[in-house]
Nucleic acid binder design. Structure first.
Lengths: 92, 92
DNA sequence: ATAAAGCAGTTTATAATATAAACCAAATAT
DNA sequence: ATATTTGGTTTATATTATAAACTGCTTTAT
């Protein structure tokens, strides 16, 4: 009847992050923060969770002297996002 | 950019309940429990929340000698469900 | 040169949620 | 008569989301 909704994606902020990353070769922390209107703390935590799950890959480097965290969706993440959408459809 | 997802509907079980009620003049506790595969406790709590919010109307009566809890979606609930769907679309 | 303010985050604490476990009353079955 | 089932509710617990506080560096102002 109703398909399970992946709890990792069933979160407003994490879903927004994935939504951005799915259509954007990569995106950095500051950009994601702006686009999602989140606080740094919340964003940091949710990025870690997505990374733990292997849904995104996080790289830490520098842009000039400033730290820079870049994120990319992984194939697994892409699949999970598509599955989530399929599951959602069973509710509508 | 991304629309807010009504926290009351952004819950697997509550969404499933609403999904059923939206296309079903009314439905009782036992039926909802079966269809959503939930435990009574969880269902009871989530029905209360939807009722508190005015998204559904709960009526307690009897079917013969057995208690019977029937639920119906309200116009407000219907609107909220539609809004939730619209909001979701901004993520896909 | 030093202090104050900003930037880019992380860590920790708190509040809210979802879920499960335990419970209850009435009805039915043994 | 006493288990068991039915139809739930209440309470406890574990997970989550979110915010608040903090860190380490850099830039700007004094």
């Amino acid at each position: 009847m109703f398909k399970e909704l992946d709890p990792l994606l069933h979160s407003q902020l994490r879903l927004a992050i994935m939504s951005l990353l799915i259509s954007l070769a990569q995106a950095d922390f500051v950009f994601l923060k702006e686009k999602t209107n989140s606080t740094s703390g919340n964003l940091s935590v949710q990025l870690d969770k997505l990374s733990e799950a292997g849904y995104i890959k996080i790289e830490k480097g520098y842009k000039g002297k400033k730290p820079r965290t870049t994120c990319q969706i992984t194939p697994l993440g892409r699949k999970a996002f598509e599955n989530y959408l399929e599951a959602l459809k069973t509710y509508f």
